[in-house]
Every structure is written in C-alpha cells, then in structure tokens.
C-alpha cells in the first residue's frame, strides 16, 4: 500500500507545483494573456506537435504498409476496369475504323458512277482450298451470279453460285480459280490476272515479253471480262521478268488485304459477254 509519508519530497513538489499553476492561472503576462494559458498553450502546442508527428508517422506506416492489404483488392479491381476499358477502347477503335471504311465505301459508291450495294462480310470460307467469303446480301437485294465485288482499295472478287435470299458467296480474286481482265495502268499493257497459292497470290498472264511492265506498276481491271468494271485497282507489280516463251512472268501484290475484308460493294451491273478492250495490247 502506498504510504504518502514515504514520498514526502514528491508530495511537497506536487503541492507546490499545483499552487504555482493556480497562481499562474490568475496572473496575466505582459501581453495580457494569463500566464497559465500562455504556459499551457506553449506546453500543449509542443505536445500536439509531438503527437501530430507521432500520428503522422503511424499514419505513414499505415499507408505504406498496412494499407497495402487493401491495395491488392484495389489493384485487382483496377486491372479488371482496365481490361474493360481496353476492350471498350478497341470497340471504339473498331467502330471508328468501320466508320472510315463505310465512309470510303460511300465515297466509292458515289464516285464510281455505278449502281452498287453495300454488303457486310458475314462469314469466311469453310474450305481451306477455296478462297471465298459470304456477304449479307442476296437475291432479295438484287444480287446475282457473276456480279463484281469491290472495295475502296480495289477489286475483291465476284459472286459465285446461286445467291440465297439474304446471302451470297464471293470468290476472291486470289482464289486459284479466279481471273480478271487487267492492264498495266502506266503502259496500258493488257493481260489476265489469276489467283495462285503462292506469295504474292496474284499473277498476271498473257502479257507479251515485249510489253512495257516494270516493278511497281499499278494494275487495274480492264473490263474485258464482262464482270469487273474497268479501272478498279487490282494490285501492284511486285516482280516483272522476261519469260521463256511469249509471255512475261509477272507477280502482283493485291491492293486489297484479303485477310481483313469486312465491308464490300456489290456492283449491281449484270455481267455481259467478254469483249476486247481498247487498251489491251
């Protein structure tokens, strides 16, 4: 049991300090503020500063370490949101690209002077040996066999088979069974572009060795086949060399990226019998 008589010195000190404080509470300093208030404020301001520093330290530790426990969940949530936003961004990019493509189609539609019908590619080719796609337009839209299919970048192919009511199959120009009358735009040298299984997937045939064909020349449709309208870009000569026989060996890089066709235009002009074009030599 605590006997205060054995703590006389401390007791005396405490009593004296208590009375000093009592006196200070009643005495004003030179500035008019009570000494106790002044001393108390000074002391407590230091205590508050120390406390604030301690609290800040603890808070920093908390924020830096303990709060990391919540950061993991937050991180996962942010990652999920980021993934969603990336998907949305890609959707927006796709939408913008689609808008650009449609705009190009509309420009082509208005500038070509031909009756055309915009169609969306709705399916690829189930047979790896054949290079065809399916479009979302059919006989109900006026699509018939052998109608040309083009895109803003160039010739795509032609309608093959009997179109369904709302769908039709398109044979791509790079199919090994496909062919189109063509001419070199610069020299007007004529020939026939056929699809191959090689790289590049187009070859220009029936061009005489004497014809003026150079690498980099643009090749356009000649219209002599009665299917493809004249003047549409087919591709660019990648390599042109003299052949062993009468004709040159010419390979062409297609203007159309056949791996990513999404929208096309069907030229609503019935095919006509093949004729000899004036520009074909």
């Amino acid at each position: 049991m605590l006997d205060i008589r054995k703590r006389t010195g401390w007791l005396f000190f405490a009593v004296m300090m208590a009375q000093v404080i009592l006196v200070s509470a009643q005495v004003q300093s030179k500035s008019g503020v009570k000494v106790l208030t002044l001393v108390t404020f000074e002391v407590f301001s230091r205590i508050e500063r120390a406390t604030s520093g301690g609290v800040s330290g603890v808070r920093n530790v908390w924020d830096s370490y303990f709060a990391l426990r919540g950061v993991r969940a937050e991180n996962e949530e942010l990652r999920r949101q980021l993934a969603q936003l990336q998907v949305k961004l890609q959707e927006e990019h796709a939408l913008a690209a689609r808008s650009q493509r449609l705009q190009a189609l509309m420009d082509l539609q208005s500038s070509s002077g031909l009756p055309t019908l915009a169609a969306e590619v709705i399916g690829g080719n189930p047979n790896p040996g054949l290079k065809t796609v399916t479009i979302g337009r059919g006989s109900a839209d006026g699509v018939h066999t052998d109608m040309a299919v083009v895109s803003p970048t160039g010739v795509v192919g032609r309608i093959i088979g009997q179109p369904a009511t709302h769908a039709a199959r398109v044979q791509l120009l790079i199919d090994r069974n496909a062919a189109a009358g063509a001419l070199v735009e610069r020299s007007r040298a004529g020939g026939m572009v056929v699809g191959t299984d090689a790289d590049p997937p187009l070859r220009m045939e029936l061009v005489a060795n004497l014809a003026d064909v150079k690498d980099g020349d643009d090749v356009v449709s000649s219209g002599v086949d009665g299917i493809y309208p004249k003047g549409f870009l087919i591709g660019r000569v990648e390599r042109s060399e003299r052949g062993n026989g009468l004709y040159r060996k010419i390979t062409i890089r297609p203007a159309v990226d056949f791996s990513s066709i999404e929208e096309v235009l069907v030229v609503l002009v019935p095919p006509r019998p093949a004729t000899r074009d004036e520009g074909v030599q």
Binding site: R5, T8, L11, F12, Q19, V20
Partner: peptide, 28 residues
C-alpha cells in the same frame, strides 16, 4: 512535515481566498 504542509496549503489558500488577492501566493 506532511501534516504541516497540508495545513499550510489549506490555511494559505483559505487566507488568500478570504483576502481577495491572488489565490495561491499565501498558500505557497
């Protein structure tokens, strides 16, 4: 000493309070 101290505290504070001055000086 302890009793004397507490007696001094009580008497001094009482005296200060009754005199109307600053309470604590007499107590101290």
């Amino acid at each position: 000493a302890v009793t004397g101290m507490f007696a001094g505290v009580a008497a001094g504070l009482a005296q200060d309070a009754l005199s109307g001055g600053i309470v604590g000086i007499g107590g101290l």
